[in-house]
Simulated scan of single mutants.
Amino acid sequence: MKLILFIAVVSFSSVYGLLRDEHYGDFFLNVARQLHNKCVPITGVTQDKIDGLKNGVFADDEKLKRYVLCLWIVSEEMNPDLSMHMEKLTKAMPKKITNGVKMYMDCAKEAERSGITEPHERVYKMVKCYYDADPENFIMF
């Protein structure tokens, strides 16, 4: 079940990034809610910060950055060593986003090359890179 999520992820609560709910099935939305509900108490992030991120506001907030990392790790689309699960990411990516996996992989490499060593900072940079490259298809929950 967890492999259906990306972000992110893809990052997604009751509002899901810039893509609308109709781009996902009930199963995906249910998994997204579960991940959100798991990662919010772990990180202590506020819903306001998450809502801002959904709208492209990348606040310099440690709890928000840790929330994004949590989504990726708990969804199992990323390992604790920050390597990506290509197969899981591919399965989770909405069909509407034809180049999303490649973009995330490119952004992950860019974040790695940046020299950032803190996992939450590096994953946040990766997600910001994806947003900057394709804000219309950004997913956050």
Score class of each variant (00 low, 15 high):
Phe6Thr: 08
Ile7His: 12
Ile7Leu: 13
Val9Gln: 01
Ser11Thr: 14
Ser11Trp: 10
Ser11Pro: 14
Phe12Val: 00
Phe12Ser: 00
Phe12Glu: 00
Val15Leu: 03
Val15Tyr: 05
Tyr16His: 15
Tyr16Val: 15
Leu19Ala: 09
Arg20Thr: 02
Asp21Phe: 00
Asp21Pro: 08
Glu22Lys: 11
Glu22Val: 11
His23Leu: 07
Tyr24Val: 08
Tyr24Thr: 05
Phe27Tyr: 06
Phe27Gln: 07
Phe27Cys: 04
Phe27His: 06
Ala32Met: 06
Ala32Tyr: 02
Arg33His: 11
Arg33Tyr: 06
Gln34Ile: 10
Gln34Tyr: 06
Leu35Ile: 15
His36Glu: 01
His36Ala: 02
Lys38Asn: 07
Cys39Leu: 07
Cys39His: 04
Val40Leu: 10
Ile42Glu: 11
Ile42Thr: 07
Thr43Glu: 00
Gly44Glu: 15
Val45Leu: 07
Val45Gly: 06
Val45Gln: 05
Thr46Pro: 03
Asp51Ser: 13
Gly52Pro: 04
Lys54Gly: 15
Asn55Leu: 09
Val57Thr: 08
Val57Ala: 07
Asp60Asn: 15
Asp60Lys: 12
Asp60Arg: 12
Asp61Asn: 13
Asp61Met: 05
Glu62Lys: 10
Lys63Ser: 13
Lys63Glu: 13
Leu64Pro: 04
Leu64Gly: 04
Leu64His: 03
Lys65Arg: 12
Lys65Glu: 08
Lys65Tyr: 01
Lys65Asn: 06
Arg66Lys: 15
Arg66Gln: 15
Arg66Leu: 10
Val68Ser: 03
Val68Trp: 01
Leu69Arg: 01
Cys70Trp: 03
Cys70Ser: 06
Cys70Arg: 01
Leu71Gly: 05
Ile73Met: 11
Val74Glu: 14
Val74Phe: 06
Ser75Arg: 03
Ser75Glu: 04
Glu77His: 13
Glu77Gly: 14
Asn79Val: 00
Asn79Tyr: 09
Pro80Met: 01
Leu82Asn: 10
Ser83Ile: 04
Ser83Asp: 09
Met84Glu: 07
His85Arg: 15
His85Phe: 11
Met86Ile: 14
Lys88Phe: 05
Lys88Cys: 00
Lys88Ala: 12
Thr90Ala: 15
Thr90Met: 14
Thr90His: 14
Ala92Asn: 05
Ala92Glu: 02
Met93Pro: 02
Pro94Leu: 03
Lys96Ile: 15
Lys96Gln: 15
Ile97Tyr: 05
Ile97Pro: 00
Gly100Thr: 09
Gly100Cys: 06
Tyr104Phe: 14
Met105Lys: 13
Met105Tyr: 10
Cys107Lys: 02
Cys107Met: 11
Cys107Gly: 09
Lys109Ala: 15
Lys109Val: 13
Glu110Thr: 14
Glu112His: 09
Arg113Phe: 04
Arg113Cys: 05
Ser114Met: 09
Thr117Pro: 08
Glu118Gln: 14
Glu118Gly: 06
Pro119Leu: 03
Pro119Val: 05
